[in-house]
Amino acid sequence: MNLIDRYVAEVGRRLLLVKGRKDIENELRSTLEDMLEERAQKSGKPADEVMQMELLKEYGAPAKVAETYNPNPYLIGPRIFPFFMFILKIVLAAVALGLGIATFIQIINLSPMSAVQLLETISKGILNIFSTSIAVFGNMALVFSLIERFAPIADFKMDEDKEWDPASLQKEPEPQEIKIWEPILAIVFTFIALSLFNFNPHLIGIYHLDEGEWKVIPLLSEAFFRWLPLLNIAWVAEIILNGMLLRTGKWTTSTRLISIGTKLFQVIILALLFAGPSILAVTPASLATGGITDPEAAQTLSQLAHTGMKIVLGLAIFGTVVDMIKSVYKMFTARATA
């Protein structure tokens, strides 16, 4: 292998992902040999290593030469970079939120714990979020660099490719702002619901004083807890949605879509709760232990409670459906004016 061959190989090594690399190498070799021959003729002596060195020095560093042939010097180019950032933000937010919730649940599970244990769990959670975020970033960069290399550019139009109408600046978008405390309240209450129903269901019940001691009659039946996993999904979705709202500060098409999706999901769960056996654990017998000793009164009360629950569920379904329709409408009016 002479110096020119080595030089060509060095350039080729830097063009591994470039189409027609062999062709570029051959063309480069042929050019260099032509140049060398010309120099040899001019100087009147056969080409030697010194002459090769001079030539290659003038031709430039292999990295620089390779660069001129590389049509795509980006890992993630300007066309898909905004898309990359968009997805990255969502995924990182989801990671932070998911692991945050996991840490929260862990704290609840391990409670009661000492202050040291608590600090330890929290710092572990934070470290976990950091290391997972870095891994996620790396994986996403990998996926997007593959997209950059193998997906046709035409699939990712830049904004300036589209015809732009300055008139779009004049149109005032429908106010989609939200009050900041709404999502915060929603998140706090959803967390409370999550921790209460999942970890402390014994606290949900009817409290009564029995000989100077507080007793609890369980309020919710097995029928309710069977659907708890679905409810958890709905609550987590609710938290994610409100987290997004908190970040954007206003409704967007994507948050509207997520909101409509979670509401639809909630309607399905509510319908399941409505159609199935009663989710209340109240029976005449349980009421009797609560101090209602008259069997007839207990029977009537229990009946009332079950019917009342069905009515509440029915109203909740109706309310959620109305909310959903409102969201759909707002999304379309916002789109029409945007």
């Binding site: 027609g20 062709d23 051959n26 063309e27």
Partner: peptide, 30 residues
């Protein structure tokens, strides 16, 4: 050279040039 050769390849990719390898003086040339 760093400008011209890549440019020739680009123009060929755009269909404005055609190219062919030929062996001349025992050396292949495009």
């Amino acid at each position: 050279q760093g400008t011209l050769y890549p440019l020739l390849r680009r123009l060929e990719a755009q269909g404005l040039l055609e190219s062919d390898w030929k062996i001349e003086e025992s050396r292949p040339r495009r």
